[in-house]
Each structure stands twice: as structure tokens, then as C-alpha cells.
Design a protein around this nucleic acid. Structure first.
Lengths: 342, 342
DNA sequence: CAAACAGCTGGGAGCGCTCCCAGCTGTACG
DNA sequence: CGTACAGCTGGGAGCGCTCCCAGCTGTTTG
């Protein structure tokens, strides 16, 4: 086995009988190279398995081809949530497709954040950053705003400055659609098991619920709105609290809570959906497996991650742009728990 | 606001009245700099917020300071599993602590793998790679073996060449400990709800179960071993299948299956742990919340991730080393379902 | 038939670091 | 008082690429 000389543009050029510059043009898919020359170079590249040195490329071109995905400390605890793994998957997939690499910043301690934020905000390592939104005021957003680093927030903060770019799922209309579906099915006393109010998606879903009722001339009854804490037990308790007020349908702000709701109803001797209809939100696996199968609102998380990358790359490559703010539509998944299929 | 000149070693040197080289020494914590000079340079670095350009550094030093974490296609589906999020967290944490960055490769399609593997194996982008082991023969391992890239497998393949470095949790001894604990409590007809046999951890846990029995003079009864498919329903069904053979304890190879087992026992009118003891494996959240709380085997996943990085960095920095293979101990978590606390 | 120009190719300069060696100090020692 | 040597500092060279401009073809046009 011969000791291969280190592969560089120069070396490939020598092998193909052209200059460094021409090889560079071929490798980067630039025009202005004669077809036969291009082919000859490509052949050498293929045979040698040459991959240009990314460090040299970064240094010379002043761009690294790496995007950062930042999961702040306040979110990292939920990283096990299928939502995040799915989102991360969408983001990574889109990165590769667009020729970028992905660097993950999963923060766990404050020290880590302090140590790494300056490096992240530094233009020289990353070309752009996607930040997962958090509930509280994270130091990362102002840090990034101070820098020239292109960045995008996924999901929304409670207080979102309007000069930020973000993309999110439209929780309001998702919830509204779900409730309107229940209304169409003839339900009138529709209860809502909400999430923690300091949580933006929870708040938005509640708004969507209220909007659907108002627009359909149904009065909002505060007795029919109970906080279920985003947990199954919370959903169970919430349903118990709701029963005295005789709802004919319950819209839960998450599938997890909806599962608790269904269990509570069963335990109270009620049939779902015959006696009472139930809808969830998220479309998690347990929702599909539960008995009855849960009707719910699906977030297109994977596509959402892909879009995030596309928007960010647009910002990077098109330079200074006005903040881009986009909301992605949800999808109503009709299964058995809402009674539409009776 | 003044238009700051781009910060470079040279520029910082000018501000501190020293040369590029001296600034480099200070920034890299090398000795051979007089204390007062060092302090003066540090002051400028702090005030300007200077961070050395990683691309230039990589190019000159021939190392990038980036580690890759590869989640092959065959594993990516399980990325939502708390196991992975925890592992990823441990790995990222350790990276930062050791001054490395982390790049994530979460594969989803074959095309992605083909496209990126050559770049991953290329020394110039990553200093080292951690690969999550998969059940089937992934192209990535041979690819990395062909290259000079230092890498480490986390978990084990079914067929693990002994010239590979890997680290894993010791599933055999974890399971053995759990079963021995049940034996000490006086149980004799101990059943096992196993996972899929093509799954290495599942196989190892079964081996540990059998070992514990053999070493304690208890015959292995194949009627007492049932595959629970790593799912709750599978656990439920497995327990039903076991009941005719009158086990006095059931060791499930995962908490998820254990939860199913407990539900089946309850539905059969049996009390846990009074009538029958149950142990799980993993120590997931549901295990802690179930009724009764599940005794289980905990994997120190976070520490495990940290160790993975340490071992890898050792390989990188110490150069050519013999393959390092390490097993990490599990921890027995005694709660209520095994009856030790009666 | 000369001039202009598009199409292609080569090489210089420079990106911001690290590494190495030369040189410059000051102290220890013969 | 000269020599040796450690302790510190500065600058050259070079990492492998991109960008840009110069130059060399061959074709088109006045």
C-alpha cells in the first residue's frame, strides 16, 4: 500500500494535469470549465476520494458551512420529548440536503452557556444559528442580537420582539380547528383542559379554543376550563373536576392529558365518544394506541424543522433581510374519540 | 459606534504591545510568558471579547476541536428514546468541558449516509467520532476502520470485532444483580420477560438472568422465559403467558415491559409485591411513578456519555492506542415492586 | 484584416492561525 | 570578565483553500 501524498487541490490538479484553480472550480460546481476538463478532474476526484479541507475552505471563504442548533438550559430538560427529537431530525436532514453540517449545543449548566455563547455568536465558527425558544428570558437571544450572526428562533418566546425572525406552529388555529370540528359534530358544552399558562403553546391553544367558541356564538364558561398541567394525572384530575358541569366534549391541550381525561371518563362509567367526545393535541404514539384511538391535532414537526433550516439559510445567503416570521399549519387527525366516525 | 477592526491575534498583539506569537501563547495557556505580559494580553482579550478563529486554528494545527456523534439510520428511529437524549446530553456536556465542540449526525436516509460518511471519515473536519452501535451491520464501522479517524463505539454490535474500541453498560451483571436480589428475597420461580433476541442489550440481560439462576443452583425453566418485545402490551401479554407456570417473581428486561407486567398481574387479581415480585430495567420516569413504584436497574447513562468522550479524547491525544473496551456498572434501585421493603 | 471580446485557465495574494527557530535579555558560573 | 544557558519574545513559513486578475485561446465583428 503506497503512502498516499496528502490530497489537496494542488495534488489533484497535478494528477489531472490542470491547476489548483480549475480543480476548485470543478469541486465547487462553478461554470467556466470545459466539459472534457471537468470530466477528467471529476474522475481523479472520484478515484482518490478527495474531499476538500473544510478548515482551509472556511478560512479562505469566510464561511464554515456549519449551522448551530442551540437547546438552552431551560429547554434541555425536555430534550427527551419526542417533539425535540423529531425537530432535531428534521433540522439535521435539511442541513445535509443543503450542504451544511450541524453542530449541537445542548446546554445543561449555566457555566456551559457562559463559556460557549461567545463562541457561538462569533461569526467564524457558525454561519447561522437556530435557537429553540424557551419560556423565560434566556441570555442567548440578546447575545445573538448584539452580534452579526444570522439566527432564527424556533417556537416563540412569551415576549417576542418583532425584529426577530422566528418560525412556529400555529397553535391558535390548530386548536380552533379542533374545537370547530367538535362544534360541527353538534357539541355545545365543550370543555378545555389547558396546559400551564406560562407556556406559550398552552396559552395559544386556549386562545384558539375560546376563539372557536366565540365565533360560533357559544358563550365561554370558565367552569369548563381547567388546567391539566400537561400531565396524564393532571388530565385525569381535570376531567374529574369538569364532570359536575356536564360537558359533552373535552378538548385537551395535549395528548398526554387527553389520555388522562379518557381514563377518568371511563372510571366515571362514561363511554367515549358516545357519552362524551374527546380531542387531544400533538399526535403522539400513545394517542394512536389508546382505546378509543384519539382524535387530535398533528404538528408537522419534521417539515417544520426542514423549513427552519431553509429560512435560516435564506437569511444567511441573502444577507440582511427583514425579520421573517412564519406560522405553520397543523393538521386535524380524526380518529375515534371525537365521535365523527360513529 | 466605531467600526471595530476585525479581531485577530495580530490586532490583539498591537493593542497589548506584543507580537502575534505571544498572544497565541497566552490564549492557548502555554508557559514561557512573563506574568505581567500575560496579564496585559488577557486584559485586552477580555475587553475585546476576542475569540480565535477556529478555521484558521484548525488549518494551522491540523485539528478541528470538533467531535462527531453519529446516530446511524438504524438507530435514528429510537432517537426519541430517553436513553439517547440522556446519552447525547452527557456527551455534549463532556465535550464542552474538554474544550471540544460537538457535531451531530442524525441519519435518516441511506442517501444521507452515503453523502456524509466520506466527509466524516476525513480527518480534516472531525478529530474523532462516537458511533452509536446498531443491531445490523452498518456501513459506517468498516468505513471508519479504513480511515485513520479515531473513533469509539457506544454500546455493542452483535458481532463486535475485537480490534474496535467501545464502551458499554454491563447489561449482564446488571441483570444478574437484579435477579440475585430477587433470589436473596427468597424467590425461586423467577420468570423473565425478555426483549427481542436480536437486540444485544436484551440478549445480555437474558444471559445475566440465566447466570444468576445457575450460580444459585436454580434450574432454568424455559417456560418461565417469554419475549415481551420491549413494549408495554408485550409485557402485559408475556405476564399472562407466564401466570399458568406460577412464577413468584418476574424480572422484565425493561421498565416499559415491567409496567405492562404489573398491569397484567393487577388485572389477574394479584398483588405486587405481596403475591408476586417485579423488577424492571432502565429506571425510566414511568417506573418511578407507577403503583407500586418499580424496583429496577439503573444505567448511569449521563456518566456513561461523559466517559465515552473521555476515552475518545484519550485516543485522539495519545495517538495510536490499543483498542479500549470498557463496561460500566449499573446500579440496583430498590423501590416497592420487589418486596424488599415489605 | 485588425480589433474586440467571450471562454477558459493559471497563479498570486491572502484568510488567521500554529509551529519553529532565531535572537535578545539577564543571571550563574568558571 | 567572558561564556553558557535558561527564559522570554518576535517573525518567517506554511496549513489548503477562495478570490481575483492576468493572460492565452479562438471566434465574432467593423
Amino acid at each position: 500500500m503506497r503512502m498516499a501524498k496528502k490530497l489537496t487541490l494542488e495534488e489533484i490538479g497535478k494528477l489531472a494535469g490542470v491547476s489548483r484553480s480549475t480543480v476548485s472550480r470543478v469541486v465547487n460546481g462553478q461554470p467556466d470549465v470545459k466539459a472534457d476538463v471537468r470530466e477528467r478532474v471529476m474522475k481523479v476526484v472520484r478515484e482518490t476520494g478527495f474531499v476538500p479541507n473544510p478548515a482551509a475552505r472556511s478560512l479562505a471563504a469566510q464561511r464554515s458551512g456549519i449551522l448551530g442548533l442551540v437547546i438552552p438550559r431551560s429547554v434541555a430538560t425536555f430534550f427527551g420529548d419526542p417533539y425535540f427529537s423529531r425537530l432535531t431530525q428534521g433540522i439535521s436532514q435539511a442541513c445535509y440536503e443543503q450542504g451544511y453540517m450541524l453542530s449541537l449545543f445542548l446546554f445543561y449548566t449555566e457555566k456551559e452557556e457562559e463559556l460557549l455563547l461567545p463562541r457561538i455568536a462569533q461569526r467564524s465558527f457558525l454561519d447561522g444559528v437556530i435557537v429553540q425558544a424557551t419560556t423565560d428570558a434566556d441570555p442567548i437571544i440578546p447575545q445573538l442580537q448584539k452580534s452579526t450572526m444570522p439566527f432564527l428562533v424556533v417556537g416563540r418566546l412569551n415576549e417576542m420582539p418583532d425584529n426577530l425572525s422566528f418560525i412556529d406552529v400555529d397553535n391558535v388555529s390548530g386548536a380552533k380547528n379542533a374545537v370547530e370540528h367538535l362544534i360541527k359534530l353538534g357539541h355545545e358544552r365543550i370543555a378545555h383542559v389547558s396546559g400551564r399558562v406560562d407556556n406559550r403553546p398552552a396559552a395559544d391553544r386556549k386562545i384558539g379554543y375560546e376563539k372557536a367558541l366565540s365565533e360560533n356564538g357559544i358563550p365561554i364558561d370558565s367552569n369548563l376550563i381547567v388546567n391539566g398541567e400537561f400531565s396524564e394525572e393532571g388530565g385525569y384530575a381535570a376531567a374529574q373536576a369538569l364532570l359536575p358541569y356536564k360537558p359533552d366534549a373535552i378538548f385537551a391541550a395535549s395528548d398526554t392529558m387527553a389520555v388522562g381525561v379518557v381514563r377518568a371518563l371511563k372510571d366515571a362509567g362514561l363511554l367515549v365518544p358516545n357519552d362524551i367526545a374527546v380531542m387531544g393535541f400533538d399526535d403522539l404514539i400513545p394517542a394512536q394506541r389508546s382505546e378509543p384511538q384519539l382524535s387530535t391535532v398533528k404538528q408537522p414537526i419534521l417539515r417544520f424543522g426542514v423549513s427552519a433550516v431553509e429560512v435560516l439559510i435564506n437569511i444567511i445567503e441573502k444577507g440582511d433581510m427583514p425579520p421573517r416570521q412564519a406560522l405553520y399549519d397543523t393538521e386535524l387527525i380524526i380518529r375515534n374519540s371525537c365521535g365523527a366516525k360513529l
